[in-house]
Every structure is written in structure tokens, then in C-alpha cells.
Write a protein that binds this DNA or RNA. Structure first.
Length: 109
DNA sequence: GCGGTGACGGTCG
DNA sequence: CCGACCGCCACCG
């Protein structure tokens, strides 16, 4: 099954990210079931359509930084996150230790 | 069908 | 702490 592209799987995970939280590409990739790792997750978001209802802006790299190459897009992403209550430090990084989304680990731990 | 590239990640210096 | 290099593998030309 899974006739649909793997990207749909990624979008589904991204949609699960709650407001005011962020997730890393690797995290999303793993939750999406991507064996290749984070790179494909980034590709999936790259292929994302602007009109798609997916909070792509909640996805940052493992360093808590915006990996987007497009400067305008990066600014937009940061703005949207700050708007949700996710602050950036002087280095333009998010405190993943506090704001990284904790995926529902089948029962808390 | 082959080669280069990339919304990354982890490790080394 | 930060910067640089290599590695993985799917997608595009």
C-alpha cells in the first residue's frame, strides 16, 4: 500500500507538531518512517506546496536553526515561530531543550 | 541510465 | 562553543 509518496507521510507528522513547539528534520524523518534519514525529510518540505496546510515553519535542523536557504522564507519561518511563542537567541537558534516537540511515545516515560 | 545535488546529521578539530 | 568534512540516499536534469 502506500501508493502515495513518502512525503505525505512527512506532512502527516509535521501536522502533528503542536503550536508553540518545533521539531527537527531527523525527528520528523524517523516518525515518518524514512529510512534514509533527515535529508529526505528536508526534500519533502522543499517539495511542499505553499497552499498546503502544513506548519512547515515548525521544522528546524538539529542545531535548532533554520536551514532554509531562502532568506525570505527563513525570516518568515522565524516570524511565525516567534508569533507562536518560540523565541530565538542572538545566534538565531531555538532552545530545543525546551521547545522541541516530544512526540507521543506510546505512554509517557 | 548516470552523475550531481541537497529545508541534514553526526563526528572531528 | 563553533566551524568544517564526510556520509546517506532519494530526487532532478
Amino acid at each position: 500500500m502506500s501508493a502515495a509518496p513518502s512525503w505525505e507521510r512527512v506532512y502527516a507528522v509535521v501536522r502533528r507538531v503542536p503550536r508553540g513547539r518545533v521539531a527537527t528534520y531527523g525527528q520528523v524523518a524517523r516518525l515518518a518512517g524514512l529510512t534514509n534519514g533527515a535529508r529526505q525529510a528536508g526534500y519533502a518540505l522543499h517539495a511542499l506546496r505553499p497552499h498546503t496546510a502544513v506548519p512547515w515553519y515548525r521544522i528546524v535542523n538539529a542545531a535548532g536553526r533554520i536551514s532554509l536557504g531562502d532568506v525570505a522564507g527563513a525570516v518568515t519561518q522565524r516570524l511565525l515561530l516567534e508569533r507562536e511563542g518560540v523565541p530565538f537567541d542572538a545566534a538565531g537558534r531555538v532552545d530545543l531543550a525546551r521547545y522541541q516537540w516530544k512526540a507521543r511515545p506510546r505512554r509517557g516515560a
